[in-house]
Design a protein around this nucleic acid. Sequence first.
DNA 1: TTAGTTGCAAAACGTTTGCAACCCG
DNA 2: CGGGTTGCAAACGTTTTGCAACTAA
Lengths: 145, 145
Amino acid sequence: MKYPVRMTHQREVILDELKRTRTHPTADELYTRVKKRLPRISLSTVYRNLETLSNAGLVSKLEITGRQKRFDWNQEPHDHIICTICQRIDDIIPPMSGLGQLSDIPSDRHGYQLTGWRVEFFGICPDCQQKHNETHDHDPSKETQ
Amino acid sequence: MKYPVRMTHQREVILDELKRTRTHPTADELYTRVKKRLPRISLSTVYRNLETLSNAGLVSKLEITGRQKRFDWNQEPHDHIICTICQRIDDIIPPMSGLGQLSDIPSDRHGYQLTGWRVEFFGICPDCQQKHNETHDHDPSKETQ
DNA sequence: TTAGTTGCAAAACGTTTGCAACCCG
DNA sequence: CGGGTTGCAAACGTTTTGCAACTAA
């Protein structure tokens, strides 16, 4: 699943910065980081390379529901849990994600040839739970979905 | 889960058009339909109302991963299967969707307070399968993820 | 009466593209 | 050397917003 790509300096730095970022940065977050090391790099180079590198199988692209694309160095299949308050995204380790139980879905369901699925979990992250407990106000209309 | 909203003429027509559209239209698809009945309506009114109506619990918003938002009259919880070729979206009936098996996820996983999850299925719809069989060319690099 | 809603235009947002200069293999 | 890649600027498609006029309750 990994295809060869020409390894430019920009590409190396982008990959390196992604590797050392445990969060799931957006293209412009990564651009901000990379720009510290390569001040003349452009945002479009970052976009183009993330696209290229994800096609080449070197990074993975997270197209999380209704949100900006995010990129991930972690190539192992895993799911994500998204904080509906601060939008932070964390990894979920596969054995607990429910993916296993889903494999018995009939592939010809609705006439579709099934090629994959994605599970996203939503919740409130530890930090936001704490803030919530401190302030004690609750507005359900602000919640996702 | 349904909050009252002021029922304007525009809102009525938007709701009615959404109700009679079995697909999951985007805001501009709906705008095109509604404009035939209300030629002076603006796209921003459609956007604003879909947002308002979905907050009010009268329609549901599908924020499918990396794609344009789509809207749905069907308020019953159900999942979706998305054609990776033509982007068409169909409903999946709950008993087969796998949601049931996921309910045993521990809610304190990773310190998150779990509030929900979403499953999206990807596949090739009957129409695109047929077209594929007719043309016989296959480019795996064009497939989603 | 008045707070919520409309149409319009413009802005915002994330992302992609055309292009000439450049550089990796 | 030649084709892939870069930086820049400009365009793109989708969505949001500011505003004065309007309208449902």
